[in-house]
Amino acid sequence: MFQYEKRLQYPVKIKNPNPKYASIIVSQLGGPDGEIGASLRYLTQRIAMPYDEVVGILTDVGTEELGHFEMISAILYQLTRNLSYDEIKKSGFDTYFVDHTTGIYPVAASGYPYSASQFQSKGDILADLNEDLAAEQKARVTYDNILRLVDDPDVCDAIKFLRAREIVHYQRFADALGIAQDKMNAKNFYGYNPSFDKKR
């Protein structure tokens, strides 16, 4: 089960609201490489994973991603405080505002709502772990792009923390893939998982 701890993994304190930045950063909430998709990916994949160490990595990384979902939510909340209707219209935040006001809702920056079709849980060790490695790199690129578009030190500070976490998670999933391959049949040099094809 899960228990909530009443603090962010890394502090978010943004002095200046900026609805334009919010409409970009919302992609890391509900976009294709966002934090809610990341946590759902790992926390679903771990259930069918046969190796204890890999279950551990998926559990602990997936749990951390829930904390990142909360950090992105905090960034969005603080970027959209005390806005005037004029600011909302000029910044382009109006297309989000009309549906959600300043509530936190998982959509991509394009406006496409969060969809589970953006991740996989394939029930296959190699397919799942390779997806996880790619997912961490894709999220890292999204944070790089956010840092290219945003120029407020309060926002960039939290985004840089999240970006660094993608890199660490990538390392741990590389370890997980190594562990899984060591445990699979040593003659399995084609790197696939034949367990379902064995005659029972």
Partner: peptide
């Protein structure tokens, strides 16, 4: 937490 993730892979 960082040590925890590492220990998962290198117990």
């Amino acid at each position: 937490h960082e040590a925890l993730l590492y220990l998962d892979a290198y117990p």
